[in-house]
Simulated assay, not measured.
Amino acid sequence: MKFQIPLAPGTITKFLLRVVTCLVVISFLSQMAAYLLPGNPHENYLVKAFGVDSERNVPTAYSALALLFCSFLLGTIAYVKNLDSGPYKNHWKVLSFIFVYLSLDEAGQLHEKLIQPMRTMLNATGILYFTWVVPIGILVVIFLLSYTKFLFHLPVPTRKLFVAATAIYIGGALGMELVGAYRSFTAGESNILYQIIVTIEESLEMVGVVVFIHALTSYIKTSLGGVNWNIYIPGKHTQVTEHENIGIPALSGRSNTNISR
């Protein structure tokens, strides 16, 4: 038995947006319940399990997997570019590794380990209270400058989606983080306004990743010929030599690439 699963940008984007919407709504409702219904025996469980500002929970797992999926798509593009000796193939590879790190960082909250030592060193207050934004912000600027030529070699629709995804993601990860840092410094984190800021921040990050995934899947479809996953499931009358296989055929019209395992 054979199933073919096409990598359809529109279908994937709609699905991911629904998931993000559900996660954000459940997180916000759980946070509001904790403030408006104090003493509820389930409030701590709900906040820990679904709060977007909590660690090692459902939203964290989703975000880590979404970033890892970005890395996979970038790696697929890099593989094809390498076979075709395409331009900027190393840029695609570096992007793939960056998203592996972002996925690990999301899962383990690695960047937050910079907060206390940097806060002590800079004696940070106000919008820099979450001091990890300083070194990460510098790295983001360096990255954006080094990828300027790469960006302008992309097709116009892909370029616009890349810019939109970057602006949305950085607007949440750094922009709203600064707002949240100021609120945390002046009024603490146990208040509704801070939770609203955090919800907006995490929502922008997740939406930015969805836009980026849409950009990558659309680029694969229009510029590399598309991707299909072929799944073979042995049946009763299957020959002995037949086995389960997941493949990605014909990624590129020029190279007729085939990836399978």
Rank of each mutant, 00 (worst) to 15 (best):
A167C: 10
E202I: 07
P135Y: 07
P135G: 09
N230H: 13
A173K: 02
R119G: 04
I115H: 10
M176E: 04
G180C: 06
V240G: 11
W229E: 07
Y147F: 11
L102Q: 09
V211L: 13
I136H: 01
F212G: 05
Q239T: 14
G235W: 01
F152I: 14
H111D: 13
K149M: 11
G172K: 03
I98V: 15
T120W: 01
F152H: 12
H237S: 14
G235C: 11
T131M: 08
Y232S: 13
Q109M: 15
P155N: 03
G108P: 01
N191K: 07
G180I: 02
F212S: 05
Y147P: 00
P117C: 06
K221M: 10
A165F: 01
P234V: 11
G126W: 05
I170A: 10
I170Q: 08
H111F: 03
G172R: 01
P117Y: 07
A173F: 01
T120E: 11
E189G: 12
V163R: 02
G225T: 08
L114C: 04
S223Q: 15
M206F: 03
F97T: 10
A165W: 00
H214K: 14
I213H: 00
A164C: 07
G208Y: 00
F99M: 11
Q109S: 15
M206T: 09
H111N: 12
A165Y: 00
V140H: 03
S190M: 14
K149D: 12
K221Q: 12
I170L: 15
Q239K: 15
G175R: 04
L128V: 07
S103H: 02
M176H: 01
T125D: 13
E242G: 11
Q109D: 14
L145S: 10
T148D: 09
Y101C: 10
G137N: 05
Q195V: 09
I231H: 12
A173N: 01
M176P: 00
Y182G: 06
M176F: 09
E205M: 10
V134M: 03
V140D: 01
V179F: 02
F185L: 05
L114Q: 06
L174H: 03
I231K: 12
M121G: 09
V140N: 02
P117R: 08
V141N: 08
Y101K: 09
F99E: 04
L144P: 00
R119Y: 00
D105Q: 08
Q109F: 11
G188A: 06
V240I: 15
E106Y: 00
I115W: 05
L151A: 05
L128P: 00
G175P: 06
F97D: 03
P135A: 11
S96H: 04
P234I: 09
V133Q: 06
R119I: 04
A187R: 14
F152G: 02
G137E: 04
Q116R: 13
G175H: 04
M206E: 07
V207E: 02
I233K: 11
G226R: 09
L110Q: 08
F99K: 02
G126V: 10
Q239P: 12
G235L: 14
E205V: 09
